Simulated assay, not measured.
Amino acid sequence: MFIFAHRTMTNTVFRKVTATTALAPTHREGQSMSTHSFVIVLTCLVALLTGTLVAAAAGYLARRDNASYPAAITRAAVAFAATLTFATALATALNTATGQ
């Protein structure tokens, strides 16, 4: 299998990919992600995962409490929104406290 490997903007080459080829990108000047950006992306992903798990648990518990499907979905949506709001407020407070 071949994939594109960009050397420069005008010179594109093919690189042969085998089972032993390392697919990790090499560090090139001007293309690395800063640590701060990485932490922001990671925080967003953790917040979304946590919100999804909380919403699933809230919907499941609502159904176990004999709520109708629309009521269970509504409770799950409210729990998801509340979790994301809390995570956003926490991330903003941490960002303000660290001075980044």
Rank of each mutant, 00 (worst) to 15 (best):
A56G: 14
A57I: 02
A57F: 11
A57E: 08
A58G: 02
A58E: 10
G59K: 05
G59N: 06
G59M: 10
Y60M: 08
Y60A: 12
L61S: 01
L61V: 04
L61H: 05
L61Y: 12
A62Y: 03
A62H: 09
R63F: 09
R63N: 03
R64G: 11
R64Y: 07
R64V: 11
D65S: 14
D65I: 03
N66R: 10
N66A: 06
A67C: 13
S68P: 00
S68N: 06
S68D: 14
Y69W: 05
Y69E: 12
Y69V: 11
Y69P: 07
P70W: 00
P70Y: 05
P70Q: 04
P70E: 13
A71Y: 03
A72S: 12
A72Y: 08
I73M: 09
T74G: 08
T74E: 13
R75M: 12
R75T: 15
R75V: 08
A76R: 04
A76Y: 04
A76W: 06
A77H: 05
A77S: 04
A77K: 01
V78T: 03
V78R: 14
A79Q: 11
A79Y: 14
F80H: 08
A81S: 03
A82L: 13
A82M: 10
T83V: 14
T83L: 08
T83P: 11
L84A: 06
T85F: 15
F86M: 12
F86D: 00
F86S: 09
F86K: 02
A87C: 09
A87F: 14
T88Y: 11
T88W: 01
T88F: 15
A89G: 08
A89Y: 03
A89H: 01
A89I: 15
L90Q: 02
L90G: 05
L90D: 14
L90C: 10
